[in-house]
């Protein structure tokens, strides 16, 4: 099979992830008073693992496994107590607030949405209502079942 991975592609990923790291570290400094350098190291770790996941997806011959799965599994693995660098990884990534990453993501989403503003108008309120109902239904359905399961197994 043909491996669809070029040096150019990887260097572009690295470029974007570096920019993201600096931005997120500044965001963490402003919003959560985390030390800038420690946040930045934390971001580098998060980005490095993403990069490995992206590359692994290109190298392995399983077409239907998306990179997000590899990225998640690697992230899970390196934080397990018996992984030698786990303490270090956990320490530095704890200097990156989860929600601060979403703040950056949504800023790009806002610009990305710009060109779609017209279609948002056309799909209109009906599309938005259905989307919200979908999210609401998924969230509440899951929470109710989780609550019952937790109560049944005596965890709460």
């Amino acid at each position: 099979m043909e491996i669809d991975l070029s040096f150019k592609m990887v260097s572009e990923w690295i470029g974007i992830l570096l920019i993201f790291s600096v931005m997120a570290a500044i965001g963490n400094y402003v919003g959560y008073q985390y030390p800038f350098v420690e946040s930045l190291i934390g971001m580098f770790i998060l980005c490095l693992i993403s990069l490995v996941g992206l590359i692994v997806e290109k190298l392995l011959p399983f077409d239907n496994i998306p990179a997000i799965i590899y990225i998640s599994l690697i992230g899970l693995f390196v934080a397990l107590p018996w992984f030698p660098l786990a303490d270090l990884i956990i320490y530095y990534t704890s200097k990156v607030d989860l929600i601060s990453l979403t703040t950056v993501l949504l800023a790009y989403a806002g610009v990305a949405m710009g060109k779609d503003l017209g279609s948002f108008k056309k799909v209109g309120l009906r599309g938005i209502i259905v989307t919200f109902a979908v999210i609401f239904g998924t969230y509440l359905g899951s929470a109710v079942i989780a609550h019952i399961a937790l109560a049944y197994t005596g965890m709460i």
């Binding site: 974007i16 998060l46 997000i68 990225i71 998640s72 786990a86 989860l98």
Partner: peptide, 18 residues
């Protein structure tokens, strides 16, 4: 945006792993 989802997933995965 597609690329930035990665580090977010790693952060969540680390929370689960630890």
């Amino acid at each position: 945006m597609m690329l930035l989802v990665g580090p977010l997933l790693v952060k969540l995965a680390i929370a689960s792993g630890q």
